[in-house]
Amino acid sequence: EPLWIRPDAPSRCTWQLGRPASESPHHHTAPAKSPKILPDILKKIGDTPMVRINKIGKKFGLKCELLAKCEFFNAGGSVKDRISLRMIEDAERDGTLKPGDTIIEPTSGNTGIGLALAAAVRGYRCIIVMPEKMSSEKVDVLRALGAEIVRTPTNARFDSPESHVGVAWRLKNEIPNSHILDQYRNASNPLAHYDTTADEILQQCDGKLDMLVASVGTGGTITGIARKLKEKCPGCRIIGVDPEGSILAEPEELNQTEQTTYEVEGIGYDFIPTVLDRTVVDKWFKSNDEEAFTFARMLIAQEGLLCGGSAGSTVAVAVKAAQELQEGQRCVVILPDSVRNYMTKFLSDRWMLQKGFLKEEDLTEKKPWWWHLRVQELGLSAPLTVLPTITCGHTIEILREKGFDQAPVVDEAGVILGMVTLGNMLSSLLAGKVQPSDQVGKVIYKQFKQIRLTDTLGRLSHILEMDHFALVVHEQIQYHSTGKSSQRQMVFGVVTAIDLLNFVAAQERDQK
């Protein structure tokens, strides 16, 4: 057995438009009618409502009807409940999964919650491996369901041993009777949507819809739904939504950006999952974080739909894509998950301010006199920076000697690579993860907040409520011999709460 199987392995699926269902090699399930009293909570997966979006479509000038398939009504709160249950049931049916076995899954959280929910009911041990950027709410729900959680670096490539995929496979090879159901490759993922989600949409719309818009992560949702719609409703256009920084969209030119990270969760990847059939997507749109969270908040405030950030991405694209539809036509959007997962993220004004998705003037509360002053007023001194090749031991000596707790790590040209902190280095040394002679590049981390000289002290204040420091950066445009230009970030300084307090105190003292 291989040590790991690539999540982007070539698909062996034989589905073709027009091929009889009787030739399918898979076990198919028909939607079942729910009894009045459910035998367990797993029976509350599927049969989610279709809700008309009344205000947002009109606000953006849509002539067509805009409908939302509300997947956050599933038992675990997301569309991923469907595939989690289906993968477990299919693994039980073919004898792969037996009582007492362990389920391991690399996930952005929602599939993990679905699997942990099913594992709690069915009696399996469950280990979820997820990147650090995923919300604390997801972690809390997983723990409450009895799952064990392993976190991995957000910026690790999918084929790196440190990625959530790599760590999951390492655990599988170490733990007896453990299984990775593997949402990236498992046919049960798109089949769950082909058999149930798509049929529900067709039934709820009486077979009449002209466009379907869905955000894409593993691709199982859009693949399964689109294949069924292509068979039953061939005139329906399928629109895929991919965040900026991901590479799922086609044509490839759409993916060209210097951005590699994004805040919206559960969609987009740096590889093409095996289950994603991009041939059934008629057109791709890219979405960005700001519009995703703005539209998610709009869905909550104006439509009462308590959905997550990827739902915002989907609707932001839908109001663009559906401009081509006329009166009497219908566009369906998939709202994948609930706001429950993001209470401390985009639902929080403070978080939105820190990330730059909300401006101070958007909030009406009274601010102190210094709130709208610029960061450049602080008069920061030149920063202490270190090269990635310097040793951890030497870096600790320098920081202690100069009285700093942290320093930016830059390359020879001064471009920011990340940050090192005294606390992080000492804990890594004590844990045996690094040696004093190791290069400081081994303990770089990139989960820090950046701020510009033109940003306000109010925004800085919000950042420092949650973080010990902020890195002050400025952009530099560099022209190359080819005539092309590129933008790079340079370090201007490091600012802490002490710097802000000293500035405010000094100004008030001078005024007296």
Rank of each mutant, 00 (worst) to 15 (best):
R509E: 12
W351T: 02
K320F: 09
T314D: 05
V409T: 14
M466L: 11
M352W: 02
V280R: 11
K484G: 08
I444S: 13
V472Y: 02
K286T: 04
S486K: 14
A497D: 15
E397M: 10
Q326C: 08
V472M: 12
W351V: 02
R297Q: 06
Q478M: 09
T385L: 10
L353N: 04
F285G: 09
E365N: 05
L325S: 02
S486C: 12
T456Y: 11
P408I: 02
A249E: 07
Q435I: 12
W284L: 02
K449M: 10
H462F: 14
H480S: 10
V434F: 13
A322G: 05
Q256G: 11
Q326D: 08
E412Y: 10
G308W: 05
V375N: 15
S287R: 02
E303G: 06
L426S: 14
I498G: 12
G309T: 09
P336G: 02
F346I: 09
K433F: 13
Y479W: 02
L254R: 08
T454V: 14
Q476F: 13
L422K: 08
M352E: 02
L387S: 11
K367S: 09
G328V: 08
L384F: 09
V415G: 12
L464Y: 08
A321I: 04
R330C: 13
F271H: 02
E365H: 14
L426Y: 15
E258T: 15
H372S: 11
A296F: 06
S313M: 02
Q487D: 14
A316F: 11
D499A: 05
W284K: 04
R459E: 07
M466G: 14
A318D: 02
R452I: 05
W369R: 07
V495W: 10
D455G: 05
E263G: 06
T279C: 12
A292C: 09
R297D: 05
R452V: 10
D270Q: 06
T261W: 11
I451V: 14
R459T: 14
R350W: 09
T482W: 06
G432V: 12
L422C: 13
K283W: 09
Y445C: 09
V241S: 14
F285L: 10
K283C: 13
T389Y: 10
G414V: 11
I390V: 10
F357R: 06
A470M: 15
L373I: 11
K366C: 13
E475S: 02
W369A: 15
L501C: 11
W284S: 02
A301Y: 13
Q406Y: 09
Q406S: 02
W284Y: 02
G245C: 08
T260F: 13
N341V: 02
S310F: 02
K446A: 02
G418N: 08
A497C: 08
F469Q: 13
V494D: 02
P273T: 09
Q354P: 05
P388H: 08
A292M: 02
I398W: 07
S287A: 10
N341I: 02
A249T: 02
H474N: 04
F503D: 02
M490R: 13
L384Y: 07
K442R: 13
L380V: 12
L471W: 15
V440L: 12
H468V: 06
L306C: 14
L457G: 05
A322D: 05
A505S: 12
Y342N: 06
F492G: 12
K367I: 11
H474R: 04
V409H: 02
E265R: 02
F469E: 13
I396C: 10
L429D: 15
A296R: 02
L501P: 06
V410N: 11
S437H: 15
V409G: 09
G328W: 02
H474I: 07
V495T: 11
H468G: 02
H468R: 11
D510V: 13
A249D: 02
D455I: 13
G356A: 02
Q323S: 07
S481F: 13
H372N: 11
A316V: 07
A413K: 14
G414R: 14
A470S: 13
V409P: 10
S348F: 06
I477L: 14
I416R: 07
G493A: 15
S437N: 14
T364A: 05
Q439Y: 12
P336L: 04
P368A: 08
E291T: 09
S427I: 14
F346Y: 02
L363V: 09
F404P: 02
M352R: 05
S428R: 05
P436R: 11
L453F: 13
K286G: 02
K446D: 08
